[in-house]
């Protein structure tokens, strides 16, 4: 694969994601003010002093957006990595073992998926203590059901191919079959799915924070910032839309990359037809 084969849309996405990660990594260097430092009056308009204005408590909005990238990206990424590992390990185990293990895992997964994610999260978060660790875990476990379903489908698709049968006939062990025969052939769709889950995690985390159930103040996170500043909207103050826009922009960037990955996957498959 060469760089020039990457379409412009995917480049936009890659640049956007990189920008968000740079903000997250170097927040203290990039942000003009502190995370929860009150620097001016409430809801100052955009201007030279405060590029994006100030928020409902008089904190610099730009600084908070930069710091917010930290929390938002960290939590979303952590949740995605956990959900992905969990989902893939369980789904591949199910696909290769078949039989009772597969049945049990898949039925339980169906049950978990039959409750809408947000509703499930609301019920669980109403019960559990509110801290970062619980939040990440709840997001990860709920999301891993989606990863499981895709992972199992993809792995089964490959597991029934004759080259896997050929490896079994040769006498290869289960680990070889999973890592050498199946995994290399599922990387592309799995990578796309990782992006999709990441985008979803960003949106989901923001939604929870917006509802007051995600990251707790005073830590800055984009969804929570929307909640903090939403009352300004009626007075025509767009402060809430800035973190909202950041969420949207990041999610769009991730989806642009995913779209490209998915198209690449289907064009790789294209030649094989229905045989």
């Amino acid at each position: 694969m060469r760089l020039r084969d990457i379409p412009i849309s995917a480049w936009i996405g890659i640049v956007g994601i990189a920008l968000a990660f740079i903000c997250a990594l170097f927040a203290p260097l990039l942000a003009p003010h502190g995370e929860s430092e009150i620097v001016a009056g409430v809801w100052e308009p955009m201007g030279d002093a405060y590029l994006l204005g100030t928020d409902n408590l008089g904190r610099d909005l730009l600084s908070r957006v930069i710091y917010g990238a930290r929390t938002t990206l960290f939590v979303a990424l952590a949740a995605t990595v956990i959900s992905f590992s969990l989902g893939i390990i369980l789904s591949f185990t199910a696909a290769v073992s078949r039989g009772l293990i597969d049945m049990g895992l898949s039925r339980f997964n169906d049950l978990m998926m039959s409750i809408p994610t947000l509703i499930f999260a609301l019920v669980v978060l109403a019960v559990l203590p509110q801290n970062l660790f619980v939040l990440i875990l709840v997001m990860a476990i709920l999301d891993s059901t989606r990863v499981y379903r895709l992972g199992r489908a993809v792995a089964l698709d490959v597991a029934v191919m004759e080259f896997v049968e050929a490896a079994r006939l040769r006498g290869e062990g289960r680990l070889w079959i999973i890592f050498r025969e199946i995994l290399p052939n599922t990387l592309s769709p799995l990578l796309a799915e990782f992006g999709l889950r990441f985008a979803f995690s960003i949106l989901f985390l923001s939604t929870l924070s917006f509802l007051g159930l995600g990251i707790q103040p005073p830590a800055a996170d984009w969804g929570g910032m929307v909640k903090d500043n939403k009352d300004g909207i009626i007075f025509g103050i767009p402060a809430a839309l800035i973190p909202g826009g950041a969420i949207a922009a990041l999610a769009i960037c991730v989806n642009l990359v995913v779209d490209w990955l998915l198209k690449r996957t289907s064009s790789l498959k294209g030649g094989r037809g229905d045989a």
Partner: peptide, 10 residues
């Protein structure tokens, strides 16, 4: 089908 009998990534 030799197509499907060989791992396309090898």
């Amino acid at each position: 089908m030799a197509d499907t009998a060989m791992n396309p990534r090898q």
